[in-house]
Structure formats: C-alpha cells, structure tokens
Nucleic acid binder design. Structure first.
Lengths: 325, 325
DNA sequence: GGAAGGGTTTGACTTTTGTCACAGCGCATG
DNA sequence: CATGCGCTGTGACAAAAGTCAAACCCTTCC
C-alpha cells in the first residue's frame, strides 16, 4: 500500500534530518512547513521505527565474569547487569538491556517466540520501536487472565506492535481443567499448527518462573499455593512457558503439566537462540534447573546471579550445557 | 580485548543517553564529568558505530514506477531517486540512498564485495558509521592508481573502516601489460584464493562503467580513448569491475579483459544480492547491458533512468532477467 | 628535569531543539 | 447547515545540545 500524504512528509523529514544531517529549520524550509511541525514529524518517525536508534550492548558483555560464565557453562553469550550504585537500578536496567539484546539478535525475516511473565512484560514495555516488517512474533504459551496486565497475548502483541512485526497469538487457555480436554485441544488443527511452528523459531525470549507461594503461576490462579508447594516436594524446580521442570530441567510429569497448553519443551530447546532473562535473586534455583535443561543459549543476569551460577558450576563440577548447535 | 577506560565511559554515556533517554546533564551528573564531555563522548559514540541511527529507505521504494520496473525486469527491489526540485540534488542524494540501502541489505556475519568507481567512492564517503564486527568487506577488482583519489582499495578500506568491519584488499594491479603475466598472477595462490571467495559474498556493491572517451577506465589510464573507441565498435557496451561487457552483458573476449585481474563475472552473478547504483544519465546503455547480463538484483536509479529502462524493456519485449535465486 | 605533544576536560557562550496552547481545516454527524 | 471532533500546523518561549578556546593533565623524548 502506498504511503499516505502525511506519512510521506514524515519520511521526507526523517530522511533529510537523519540521513542528510540537515537542521530542523532547513528541513522545514525545504518541505515548506514550520519547524515545529518538523520536530513533530521527527518524533513520530522515531516512534514508528522509521528512524531507528540502537546502542551497542557491549558494555554488558565486556566483563571477565561474563567470559568465565560462558566458558564454564557453554552459553553462547552472557550479558551482566552490574549492581553498583554508579549504574542504573538493575530492576530498571535489566529490561532495557534485554530489549536491546533482543533487537541485536533478531534478523530480518526471523520468526521469534515470546513467552510470558512479569519480566517479559517489562521488556515489552521498554522495547524500542523498529521497522521489522517480515519478522513474525509468536506467542509461546496459552493464555491466562491475570489480575494485573501481564497476559501472554499482551506480551506478544505489544512487542509485535513496537517492532512493526506480525504478531501471532495463541487462542487457547494456558491450563484446562481436565487432561482429556487439554489433549483434545492440542490436537485441534489450528492449535496443533501453531505448536508445530514453534520449533522453527530463530529466537525465543523468556524468563524462568519460581515455585514459591508468590510465584507467577500461583498469583494468576493457575495453581494454588498448596498445590505448588506439593509440586515442589515432588521435584519441581522452576517454570518454563507455564510448565514445571525438575532440578535437571526435565519436563515434570504432573497433572498441571498434562493439563497445560503451551510450547512443548523439546521445541523450545530446538530454537537456536534461546534468550533467557532473569531478574530476581530468588530465581537462582529455577535458573540453574533451566540452564541444566538447555533452555538458554543467551543469558542476561545480574552480577551477583552470575557469580552464584559460576560458583555452583564450579562446586558441582557441572559441565557445559547441551547445545542445539 | 576489554574496553579502555575512556571507551567504557563513552559506552556508558551512550547507553544512558540513548537507551535510557536521560538528558546530557543527567548523564554528566551520573558519570561525574562535565556536560561538555558527555556531548563529546556521544559524538564519538555515533562516529564509532556504538550508537547507530538508521532511516528507512521506504520513501524511495514507494513509487509505482519502482513496482513497474520490478515487475517488468524481475529485479528483486528498485529504489527510485526523484529529480524534482522539492527533493535533494540527485547527485548528492543517490549515494546517501545507496549507503542506506547497503546497510539495510547487510546481515550479521556477511561477506560483502565492493567494486570500484566514482559512484562507489561517493557512497563510501557518505556511508554511516556502524558496528558490524563479523562482516568482511572484500575488494572485487585489482588496483589502479587514479589521478584523483578513487582507488579500488580505498573504496574497500573506507567502507570497512566505517562499518568497523574487516577489509580484505586485493594486492594486484587491475590491468597488466601482458596476458601471460595476468594469467600467471591469477594463478598465484594468494590471488587465486581471493578470487575464489568472491562467489561466496552475500552482497555486492557496484556501478556500471560507460565506454565513452571520458569513462573511468580511460581517465585512469587503463585504456586510451582510441582503444576504448575501437572496443565500442567491437561490441563493448559497459564496464563491470574493470572488465568490458557486450550489449548482452556477456564478457567480451578482448585483449584488455584478458589482461585484467578482477572478479570473474560468473562469480559476480553468483552473488545473491547484487546492488547496482547508477547515477549518470549517460550510463543508460551500459546499464541495460548490465541488467541483461544479470549483474543486478537490487537497483538504485533516478526517476528518468527508471523510465527509460522500463520503456526499453517494453519496446523490445525483454523478459525478466536471469536470477540466481 | 623540563619542554613538547598527544589527548581530555571544562566553563561560557551560541545554536538548535522540544513543547505547548491555541488556531485552522476537513469531515462525519445530528 | 451548523456542531463538534480529530488531526495538522504554528508562534513563542523554555530547555537542551553543540561548540570552542583555554586549562589541564599524562607520557614521551631530548
């Protein structure tokens, strides 16, 4: 579809300003509009992704700790978000770093999977605008109404919107009340199809969930605190795309998992770039489980978390994690 | 290699300013330096490619003429540089468009070939700075000392420098005085090797040369005006990477070509994205020859040139050009 | 040891940009 | 055909960014 007249002017203004380096008043003169309008168009061009400003994330990979962690675990790349007071607050910094890394890892025409959770939503929230037509953003797990606004489909949609990419949502609930129904629904062509395309993703963005009483699954009502507690005793260590994994990162054969409609964990592992972002210190054990399970190839963590993982790897003599490459 | 202290500060400043949207004085305060220093670091960050600002080239593809030309010729994409007085001077605009398109077409890890000529040099001259480590820029043709400063190796080097990419130069002259010597030199392992990698390029950037008396090859002294004139009578229609092609875009079996050390034309055609940029109106016939020869998959031309090509294609009932895809 | 030379850093000043309240204009709607 | 609504455009002012000469390091070299 051809450009609308106003979009045409916006493109021209952006082009003259950013590519030719004219001043706003020169642009205004050339386009015969006021300088204020030029400023307005330029803002809009930035917010539409017509103009793209990206910053290298090298600052966060440039760290001996990152190198050590990569060497010890076999992760492809590690970004370390520092916690000293010279830096930004890590809670605010982590999503920004993650969003930048995400953009760095996307290639033209890629299919990317986006999972769910507070972390992912925060990343969506600071995702820069870009013009990535040709990219497809797919939702990795079923939907779950949340009391606050972090529904899986919202994460996908928001990211797709900002990237100007196509968003493909998953129109099924995350958990059903019976295994039979879940099984049947999984077999439905429209759902089946989407589940099947997940392994074709070039990049996945997710976090790992904890299994405490205040974990996301509990808060959203998918599981009661008591159930979660019991699952912990049965060996659950963390949550990946709504499903419980054990301490070795394997799918846990439990009622909840069997009733769950979400990316099958084998498909997730098959994705070449698995970008895992972990914010809270409390997610240490879940993270270790996820790493053992091979759910990450690219990792973004705080300094202290990186230290703890490195220490654990050394202490337990854990080797390099399985890689799909 | 870890970052130098000053680079670290530059990265931090760029990060806070561009990724977090702090003001320069806030950045200055955070980093405990003066605002003037922040401004200085930011400029440097832009000039180093740590910060990347790109503008969509959609403005130039959004044109019915571009669509028609793509459909008629089978070119993958066409960018049209307008000539109305509302726009910039096409002579200044074309290289800027070309540079942007070039950046748009490069992917991480690509090997890109760069040919030679005034046009290419102008493109290098306005190429934005970027941080494309992992990209390799290779020179597509042998060297030729020019009275002015457009030597093939300089084009390659300058582009590589701006992109922070690796530049691979070609240490051989473009034309030798005897066929025997050219043949022997082509057989030298170091040259052979470079010639062999050309077909592995993912992207090539070039223009097509004319065969008039004031053509580049003549001006640089590779051929005399008289020789060029004679070659024209023998069927030469244009110049690709220093070599003459006939009206169908085929390699011309002439003494000059046999004495030439440059990318073999089959290799050039094997490159998936062949980006051709043509500025001068006088290059119409050479362009048609180059198109027939399949030397372009992506084309950047002025409005009037696009019209002429389209008209010719229609008049002669020429089909879609051969494509390597 | 001291001078020269490279790069940083800064304060003070100028230029450029962002913003906002309000004016205009087209278009659908009652 | 008036009314109102959403969008685009503007002038004037405030805020932010760019610039430059001069000061200030270090390091090197005589």
């Amino acid at each position: 579809m051809p450009l609308r007249a106003a979009d045409q002017i916006m493109h021209k203004a952006a082009w003259l300003y950013y590519s030719h380096g004219l001043r706003q008043d020169e642009v205004a003169q050339k386009l015969e509009i006021s300088r204020a309008s030029v400023a307005m168009y330029l803002r809009r061009a930035r917010e539409t992704g017509i103009v793209n400003i990206t910053t290298s994330t090298e600052l966060f990979t440039d760290d001996v700790l990152a190198r050590e962690l990569e060497d010890a675990t076999g992760l492809k790349a590690v970004w370390i978000v520092p916690e000293d007071r010279q830096a930004m607050d890590p809670a605010a910094e982590m999503p920004v770093v993650a969003a930048s890394v995400f953009l760095e890892l996307i290639n033209k025409g890629d299919r990317v999977g986006v999972a769910w959770g507070r972390t992912v939503y925060h990343i969506a929230d600071v995702m820069p605008f870009a013009d990535l037509r040709g990219v497809t953003v797919v939702q990795l797990c079923g939907n779950l109404g949340a009391p606050y606004s972090y529904r899986p489909d919202q994460c996908t949609t928001e990211i797709a919107r900002r990237l100007n990419a196509e968003g493909i949502n998953f129109y099924a609930p995350l958990v059903l009340s019976s295994e039979r129904l879940a099984e049947e629904l999984r077999g439905e062509p429209v759902i089946r199809e989407q589940l099947d395309t997940i392994a074709d993703c070039h990049l996945a963005l997710y976090s790992v969930g904890g299994i405490e009483d205040d974990s996301h699954l509990v808060k959203c009502g998918a599981l009661s605190a008591a159930e979660m507690h019991r699952l912990g005793e049965e060996g659950a260590a963390g949550v990946i795309a709504g499903q419980l994994i054990d301490h070795d990162g394997q799918w846990l054969n439990c009622a909840h998992n069997r009733r769950c409609i979400s990316a099958d964990l084998e498909s997730m592992r098959a994705i070449r770039k698995r970008m895992m972002v972990v914010q809270e210190e409390a997610k240490f054990e879940p993270l270790v489980a996820a790493l053992k399970g091979g759910f990450a190839s690219h990792l973004i963590v705080t300094t202290s978390m990186a230290r703890r993982v490195l220490e654990r790897w050394g202490r337990e003599g854990l080797g390099r994690i399985p890689s799909t490459d």
